[in-house]
């Protein structure tokens, strides 16, 4: 049976490879390109204390700004920094993913995410965060990842449609997927989902229904290999009814 996942001899090999890799990863992750450093300095000069925190993600600068300066950030990016191109606007839910399978059950079909809440590069104030990427079509490699916090009690953010018209569809998608309202958006209506749809599918507490009603095949449908003893511990689900 080609069981790649839990072979004991793989562990030490993986650990030694990790040791080398981690040092290089750490340095690559935290260094900024010269272009990004310059962009960050110019953004901070314009926004002042509206910039809460900044970090680096493999050469790109990640900037977290205050929610009330979100629209102003877009304007500064377009008018002063020359980032004329909007890549996307989206959101992220930092709540730890619900556990689908018990740990140690041997079911590796769904990756088990850590149980504690961490907030990624440049941090966050709460569970929800809106983030966007702007780029420049004029200069090489000029781009920024921008993030802003969203109040958990009152999910709203400023809309970018007045600055980047392309934000229209992205914000509609974020609204239906996360339930975050965008102030100043002309018409927040459903984009992908049918109009009577209830719930916000990309929130972490929204279940993946397909996985809830039928477990991932592979564990349930396992049949014993020829010559293998069909013990209870090997195939528990087959004998259930």
């Amino acid at each position: 049976m080609p069981d790649d996942d839990a072979t004991p001899e793989a562990e030490p090999e993986a650990a030694s490879a990790d040791g080398d890799a981690e040092a290089t990863v750490a340095s690559a992750a935290t260094t900024l390109d010269p272009e990004a450093t310059e962009l960050l300095a110019r953004l901070e000069a314009q926004l002042g204390d509206a910039v809460i925190e900044h970090g680096a993600a493999y050469g790109d600068v990640v900037v977290r700004v205050r929610p009330d300066a979100w629209l102003r950030t877009a304007r500064v990016c377009r008018d002063d920094l020359g980032c004329d191109y909007l890549s996307f606007v989206s959101a992220i839910d930092w709540m730890p993913a619900p556990l689908l399978v018990d740990e140690g059950s041997g079911d590796t079909s769904t990756p088990a995410q850590p149980r504690e809440t961490t907030y990624g590069t440049a941090g966050s104030d709460g569970r929800y965060q809106v983030f966007a990427i702007v780029e420049s079509t004029q200069g090489a490699r000029r781009r920024m990842v921008l993030k802003t916090d969203v109040d958990e009690q009152d999910l709203r953010a400023e809309s970018w449609v007045s600055v980047y018209p392309g934000a229209d569809w992205h914000e509609r998608e974020t609204w239906e997927m996360f339930g975050i309202e965008f102030d100043g958006h002309p018409a927040l209506r459903h984009l992908y989902l049918p109009f009577e749809f209830e719930g916000h599918p990309l929130r972490k507490d929204y279940p993946l229904l397909a996985r809830e009603v039928k477990p991932w095949p592979g564990l349930v449908d396992v049949e014993p290999m020829p010559g293998e003893d069909a013990g209870e511990e090997a195939t528990p689900a087959v004998e259930a009814p």
Binding site: D4, A10, A14, A17, D18, A57, D60, I133, V145
Partner: peptide, 12 residues
């Protein structure tokens, strides 16, 4: 490594 575990981080 045989088990692909990706370290914590963000990348675009």
């Amino acid at each position: 490594p045989r088990i692909i575990k990706v370290p914590e981080g963000e990348v675009w």
